[in-house]
Amino acid sequence: MAEPLLSVRDLVVEFPTRKGVLRAIDKVSFDIAEGEVLGMVGESGAGKSITGTAIIGLIEPPGRIAGGEIWLKGKRIDNIAPEAMRRVRGRRIGMVFQDPLTSLNPLYTVAQQLIETIRSHLDVSEKEARARAVALLDRVGIPAAARRIDDYPHHFSGGMRQRVVIALALCAEPELVIADEPTTALDVSVQAQIIDVLKEICAERGAAVMLITHDMGVIAETADRVAVLYAGRLAEIGPVRDVIQKAEHPYTQGLMGSIPTLAQESDRLVQIPGSMPRLNAIPEGCAFNPRCEHAFERCFRERPDPLDRGTGRRVACWLYDRVGAGA
């Protein structure tokens, strides 16, 4: 296999608090290949967003990356100088945040924000930057882009603003775009459009996408592979089709069972009993053990590391470590 675009190795993110150190991310490892779309799912607080923020080096102090490595095309980026990291942000890794209403500075026009970003990273003239900005706005689907580029953010609707945010994330031609719940704050009717725009434009430019969401439907349609996070740990990762059709980790199984389908004639959706543990109360062994119906003695004693299950799948569950015994 070729060298991955992004490689996260045993990432640990900690937040010191008065009650002790909280581990928001605990030894998470995954790769993203060039041009690939990796979905990242999990409940609120599972560490999806923090993983994205850690990759671009913007964890708010006193939080910090306490262990592990992040590699971008064979170069470590988690321990480089702030100025070098600034050049990575925007230029090599773009980011789209959840709420387009608050992502844009209200006091600057869209043109000012785009041109500023382009010229921070690329050596182009003001005029050239503006031409690129207009072309990009047109591409993300802003009508009359040449005229509307001089409008302020408050002149745009939520969906249009998220298109502007996508343009901003892509304007310096990054190789990877981290989209942190890009549609959660939007109207249902425009969610699909935004995902389509993001997917198409990244495919055109060969940019990989790390799509953070809790919408399994979006993942199923968009992603090549999917990573499932639970309590700051990687539960399962693999090709999206395999994971959805044959989920192996009991948590993923529960997650899939909770998606409503029209074909199914069941009265009730499956729900996972209990709730995700708080970060300061993660049980010994497997973090999922209090809610898992298959849990056995080893699950309470030892923490499972993701086991290689072939065809690019890894599952962190002791069920698959028993010799001769499957699921």
Partner: peptide, 26 residues
């Protein structure tokens, strides 16, 4: 603490541009 400052950093703007261009004006 606002999102647009976080986003400005995520776009790779210099600290100077973020602190004095974006934050101070607001």
């Amino acid at each position: 603490r606002t999102d647009y400052i976080k986003f400005a950093r995520a776009r790779g703007l210099t600290n100077r541009a973020v602190n004095f261009g974006h934050a101070l004006k607001n």
